[in-house]
């Protein structure tokens, strides 16, 4: 059985189910209690679970990451929220130098099972310090997992999967997806981390997209279908560890690949994906160069039109995919 939920509601349902099922799970962060979170994601959970398990913290991102790490290390299953992904920059030391490495450094004697949820992305007019997409920073760190769901059903299943996972997971939500609706199965279910999903099949060109860019790629694919171009859309869902097989298989089939993400192009996840594809057996099947379409290499501008142009839009994706299909090797 399933019903329509928004992405935000699906995340809330996942937290609720996890808290109901496992006493060790608790939620904390800035304004997650009575306020319900800056984007309303945790609405009602404080009323249901009380101040012991739903905790407002002071504005202290370093210690939020520290509390997640320390509590996870000693038997709890924390869900931390960093109010905007931009502010995760203040949590870096505990995440990168402690949480990520503790298990390895201590010879495998400990686990650090927490989830750190955080909303990323531009498109809200919030300018350069409230619009970041920093996921690839964490992809670079051994010991962290990085999950970026693109639909309500994926968000719920992946969040529950992340909560069950015995490792620190950075769970990146997208602000513009919060109000997007989709069919979501009822009850408790987990989606395995590290499973790429083919969101649409097609034979002419592969688009690998993440987070908000998945729905934009699907819209572009629908446009192109009308022109007779069949696009295959693959969503990695989990950036680290990456399930590369479905991506490689798709490129073997289509011979053309466009990688789309919102984060700035230089140093973004697209570079990693391009390298994975180039190093794989798909290389011999490429009929055109691997292409990337990503955020411009600038801070997110406040001006509405500049902000729009900074991030790939449906038309940009369609244009890039169309050009790629017409390109010969």
């Amino acid at each position: 059985m399933s019903r329509e939920l928004t992405y935000a509601e699906a995340i809330r349902e996942a937290i609720d189910l996890a808290m109901a099922r496992d006493e060790r799970v608790f939620l904390f962060g800035e304004d997650v209690g009575v306020y319900g979170g800056a984007f309303g994601v945790t609405e009602g959970l404080y009323q249901k679970y009380g101040p012991e398990r739903v905790r407002d913290t002071p504005i202290s991102e370093a210690v939020i990451a520290g509390v997640a790490t320390g509590a996870a290390l000693t038997g709890m299953r924390p869900i931390a929220e960093i109010q905007f992904m931009d502010f995760i920059t203040l949590s870096m030391e505990q995440l990168v130098l402690q949480a990520a490495k503790l298990r390895f450094m201590l010879g495998g004697k400990v686990t650090v099972p927490f989830v750190l949820r955080t909303p990323a992305g531009a498109g809200t007019g919030a300018a350069a310090q409230h619009s970041e997409s920093l996921e690839n920073w964490f992809v670079h760190v051994p010991g962290l997992k990085v999950v970026m769901p693109s639909t309500p059903a994926d968000a719920k299943g992946l969040l529950l999967g992340a909560i069950e996972d015995p490792n620190p997971v950075i769970f990146v939500e997208h602000k513009l997806l919060y109000r997007v609706k989709g069919e979501v199965p009822e009850g408790y279910y987990t989606l395995p981390l590290s499973r790429s999903q083919v969101k649409r099949s097609g034979r002419d060109v592969t688009i690998v997209a993440t987070s908000l860019m998945v729905s934009r790629a699907l819209e572009a694919a629908a446009q192109l279908a009308a022109e007779g171009i069949e696009v295959e859309v693959v969503d990695p869902c989990t950036l680290k560890p990456l399930d590369s097989d479905p991506i490689v298989r798709s490129v073997v089939k289509t011979g053309r690949v466009l990688i789309v993400h919102e984060a700035c192009k230089t140093g973004g996840f697209g570079g990693e994906l391009a390298a994975v594809i180039a190093e794989s057996e798909a290389f011999d099947f490429l009929d055109a160069p691997i292409r990337r379409l990503a955020g411009l290499d600038i801070p997110v501008p406040y001006n509405r039109e500049l902000e729009r142009r900074m991030v790939p839009q449906v038309d940009d994706i369609a244009t890039a995919a169309r050009r790629l299909v017409r390109e010969a090797h």
Partner: peptide
């Protein structure tokens, strides 16, 4: 003008209220 995101604003429309 900055609030309106205009070029004549203090931050050329790039910053907005928060900058």
């Amino acid at each position: 003008a900055e609030f309106f995101g205009k070029e004549s604003g203090y931050c050329r429309g790039r910053g907005g209220s928060m900058h």
